[in-house]
Simulated assay, not measured.
Amino acid sequence: MYTLYDRFTLRGQHHIRTWEQEGQSWAAYSNYRQAAAHGLYIPQPVLNLVVRGEKRIYDGLQVHHLRAGDVFLIPSGSVLCSEILRPSEDYASINFFLPSDLLATQYAAAGTGKHLVGTTLTLSPSSQWQQLTQALLRDFRKEGGAPSYENMMDRVLHLLHRETITVKQALAGRPSVPMQQMMARLHKGIHEVQLLEEIAAMGNMSLATLKRRFRETYQCSPMQWIWAKRLQMSALLLRTTEQPVPEIAYSTGFADLSHFYRQFRRCFGMTPVQWRRGENELSSK
C-alpha cells in the first residue's frame, strides 16, 4: 500500500536533479507539471522546502496544506500520503535526507525529553529559510558539481537547532531496530493486517513487546496506528481517484462498509462523499 521512500525519484515527476555524497543521494530539486499522489514510508528524516505550487500531506488525523515558502519536517519512521495539487503553475520543491544517527544522538543528548516519531511538522517560515531556499535554487541551476555536503548540512542543522522544542523532539526520535525491521515489512501490507500477532511476527517480538514499543514510538496502540494509516490512504484516494467509495474502503483494509463510514466521519468530521466533494478543507499550519 505504501512505497519505501529511500530515494528522491517518484512517479509523476517532470524533472529531478539530485546531489550525491559517496554514491548516496542527499538532496534533490524536483518539479511536477501535473497532479500526482503518493503513499510513502519514510525511514529517515526528510526536510521539504516548497518552492512553487501547493500540496497536501496526509498524516493520520491531520492534513497539512503546504504552499510556496513552507518548510516541512518529516521525522524517521513516518508513513504518510502526499498529494501534489493540480497546479496553475508547476509544483517544485527541494528535499534533504537528514543524518538520522547524528540528529537522534545530538538531540537526545541535549535532553529534549519526550521523543516524537512519525509526527510531521510545518516549521515557522523565516527569512533564513527563504535565503537558504534561494541559495539552493541557484546551486541546483548551476552546471557541474554540488556544494559541499558538510557545509550545507551544517547550515541546515544550524537552522533546525533554532527551532522549537517540539521540532527537536521530532529530530531526536527514531524507531528502534526491531521497529525498523517490522516497518520495512508492514508498510507494504497495512491494508491486509488482521491480527496483532501478524505485526509482532514481522519484528520477531512478543505481543506485549510490540504493544510497548508501539506506544513508546508512535504514542498509540498498534491497531490505532493501523486504522489511522488506512483512513489517510482512503482520504487520498477519495480526492485523487474516481474509484467508488466501497471499492476504496475494501482496498484500504475495511471489511465492513458501515465501520468505514463511522471511522471516516469520526476522523475527518464529514462523510467520505463530502470529503470527495471538498465541502470542507481540513488543514493545519
Rank of each mutant, 00 (worst) to 15 (best):
G69V: 04
I16P: 00
V63R: 07
A36I: 05
K55N: 08
R52W: 11
N31G: 07
Q62G: 12
R33N: 14
I84L: 06
R56D: 08
D70W: 01
I57R: 07
L66V: 00
A68Y: 07
A28P: 02
V50D: 00
L85M: 06
A37E: 15
I74K: 03
G77N: 15
E83Q: 15
P75T: 13
L73W: 02
G53H: 04
G39R: 15
E83G: 07
G60E: 15
L49Q: 03
I16H: 03
L61D: 15
G53M: 00
R56H: 09
S78I: 13
E54A: 06
I57M: 10
R67E: 05
A37F: 14
A27Y: 00
V79L: 14
Y32C: 00
Q34A: 15
R56W: 10
C81F: 08
L73G: 01
L49D: 04
L85T: 01
G12D: 10
R67G: 08
L47W: 01
Q13K: 06
P43W: 11
A28G: 03
V50R: 01
P45R: 00
E54Q: 11
H64N: 08
G69M: 04
R67W: 04
L73Q: 02
A28H: 00
E83F: 05
H14M: 13
Y41T: 11
Y29A: 04
Q21M: 11
N48T: 03
L49A: 02
P87W: 09
L49M: 03
I42M: 09
A68D: 04
R52T: 13
A27S: 00
Q44G: 10
A35F: 10
L40M: 08
G23F: 07
